[in-house]
Design a protein around this nucleic acid. Structure first.
Lengths: 169, 169
DNA sequence: TTGGAAAGTCAACAAGGCTGACATAAAATA
DNA sequence: TATTTTATGTCAGCCTTGTTGACTTTCCAA
């Protein structure tokens, strides 16, 4: 299973594909994801919200007026699970649910000022860490980081991601 | 907050540090982590285990004879939470808990053959995706990927990671 | 007008985090 | 030696966030 040594095909060293290297990458993902969520988690605690609320706020901010179904396919959870989170956000006045103009079955979701404020607080904390990591690693490393992450996604998620990446700018 | 344009300091473009780029990185992490866990999750379902079991198996494989306390600081959970998982793994004969020779308070954990077998199955699935992503992105991208992830970790987690990375090879 | 899609709701359940309290054994120390 | 500290395990109970299944309401479109 392990592939090592400089292969004849391409002339590039394939040492980076050894099982040992792959295991290190797996551990890096595990530990890094903890850092990735650490700052928002601390903030959310103060507001008595959880990660699920953060994710909803993030994607509603990113795609204002998105429908519940859209949001569901982004988040990859069941509507029952999302609904619980969404209900509290609406009750607490962070999110507004607007009946669709064309299709009145649909609910279009937008952040209220209060919701935008919390989203900003969470996002700023998360971006702060990201920015520090990016700066420390440098632009070339960042490009590689993004490439590997994208290649790791499941195809449907990759499509979701690319839509945001290209259109949402 | 956003920094753009080619700065005078260093001559390198800082466009990769814009809030927009950081947001894309955040989304990439989110979607990629789902892919990262998808294959093991499918396998675990068949065995009626969860992600927590996978993590325990991974780190016991990685550091055989590790103590419970060591494992706790790797995983960053409470002993009660780990204990529940560990107990089922021991009951099911995947993990063996050995009383320490020097310090008899300690329990040293090792995988049984059965445990090693499941660990291998999970790991092979996860490495398979990792390998494909690495191959698609190339060695330079992989180096960048690892750099950014490492810079993103919380300091104690980074220490844990580096200990494994350097010693565990 | 009727079928089906979009959305919401209720109930029940599971995994896997958490805290707090307590027990035991053994090591370390006063 | 007596006491304290450490490592571990365990019980009880709580929370978040995921799941499935069943059912209703709304309303677009054929």
């Amino acid at each position: 299973m392990a592939e090592g040594g400089a292969g004849p095909g391409g002339g590039e060293s394939l040492l980076f594909l050894t099982d040992e290297q792959l295991r290190k990458g797996i551990e890096a993902m595990f530990f890094a994801y903890r850092g990735f969520t650490a700052d928002p988690d601390r903030i959310l605690e103060r507001y008595e919200y959880g990660r699920a609320h953060h994710r909803a706020l993030h994607f509603i901010h990113r795609s204002p007026n998105t429908t519940v179904n859209n949001l569901l396919s982004m988040l990859g959870v069941t509507k029952q699970s999302l609904n619980r989170v969404l209900r509290t956000l609406i009750e607490d006045g962070l999110v507004e649910s607007r009946v669709g103009r064309k299709d009145k079955r649909e609910r279009h979701l937008v952040l209220t000022d209060k919701g935008a404020q919390l989203e900003r607080e969470l996002s700023e904390a998360q971006r702060g860490r990201m920015r520090a990591a990016y700066r420390a690693a440098g632009p070339q490393a960042v490009a590689g980081f993004r490439q590997v992450l994208e290649a790791m996604m499941e195809p449907d998620m990759r499509r979701q991601y690319q839509k945001l990446r290209d259109g949402g700018a």
